[in-house]
Structure formats: C-alpha cells, structure tokens
C-alpha cells in the first residue's frame, strides 16, 4: 500500500489576467488572426454542401434538379460568396504559412520559402484548372 495515501499534490493557483471576449478587436493583426481561424466554419460548410450534392445525386435526378434550383436563390448565392471569400483567405494563408511548417532540403541546400509557397500555388492553379475544364466540358 502506498505510504503516502493521504498525500495530495499542492496545486498553486495561477495568476491569470482575465481577458475580455472581444480582446482581439483593437488590433488589425488580431482581427486577421480571428478571421483566419473562423475560416474553419466556411471549410466545414463547403464540405457539408458537397455531401448534400452527393446525397441529391444518389437520390434521384429530381432531387438533384431541386438542389440546383435552391442554390440559385439569392440567399444561398450570398452565403456561397461569403464562404468562397473565407475559403480563399484560408487557401492564401495556408500556402503562405506552408514554408514555416515544412522545411525541405536537397542535400545541404534548403529549398527557399518562396519556392515551397510557389509550388503550392502552382499546384493549386493546375488542380483548379483541371476541375474547371472537367466541369465546363460536361
């Protein structure tokens, strides 16, 4: 049996300054940070939309047509414009931060940050172009 059965650890109460909820509205850099974090909601919305499209496709042609008609409503177009703006901000900030998360080397040569970010942008443009061409060519 543990001889120190009644021993309890001393937990010091940390001194923490309580921040107000809207601490981030005073500086532009903080607003940008919070906006970047909130792009997570737009990303989640977008993939949920993809699942809804899949569900309509698998249900029937009428369900798919009904969905495309709904997406023409100004409300949904507005939501999608806002979501696209947020997702593009996510894309740009993600690619710009990529060189800080991935340090790539070829032998002793460290690949410059600009090349890593540029590679991401190039891949994005090519992939988006392929999706666009596949879509419009029907």
């Amino acid at each position: 049996m543990n001889r120190n059965a009644h021993h309890t650890l001393h937990h010091p109460k940390w001194y923490r300054v309580q921040k107000p909820i809207f601490w981030w509205v005073k500086r532009f850099a903080d607003i940008r940070f919070i906006f970047r974090e909130l792009t997570s909601l737009a990303v989640a919305y977008s993939v949920i939309l993809l699942v809804v499209i899949y569900r309509a496709l698998l249900t029937s042609e009428a369900a798919y047509t009904s969905l495309t008609t709904t997406l023409r409503e100004p409300f949904w177009v507005t939501i999608n414009v806002i979501a696209l703006g947020a997702v593009l901000y996510h894309t740009f900030t993600w690619f710009n931060l990529a060189p800080r998360a991935i340090v790539m080397r070829l032998g002793k040569w460290r690949i410059p940050d600009l090349m890593i970010a540029g590679g991401n942008y190039a891949a994005w443009i090519v992939i988006s172009g392929v999706i666009y061409l596949a879509y419009v060519s029907g």
């Binding site: 990303v43 977008s46 993939v47 939309l49 993809l50 499209i53 496709l57 042609e61 798919y64 047509t65 495309t68 997406l71 023409r72 949904w76 177009v77 999608n80 414009v81 979501a83 696209l84 997702v87 593009l88 996510h90 894309t91 993600w94 690619f95 991401n120 891949a123 994005w124 992939i127 988006s128 999706i131 666009y132 879509y135 419009v136 060519s137 029907g138």
Partner: peptide, 26 residues
C-alpha cells in the same frame, strides 16, 4: 481543402447558379 474547395465552391455555388457557366447534365 485549400487545394480543392475554392474551385468546387465557385463552380457549384456561384458560377452555375448565376449562369456564368453551364453546369454539366445530371
């Protein structure tokens, strides 16, 4: 998501509903 979502959302959520491109058949 950074690579794939912008093109998908633009085509399905904006360009086709606004008639900028003709969406493919069902």
């Amino acid at each position: 998501s950074a690579m794939l979502i912008p093109a998908f959302l633009f085509l399905f959520g904006i360009a086709t509903p606004l008639g900028w491109v003709e969406g493919p058949a069902y």
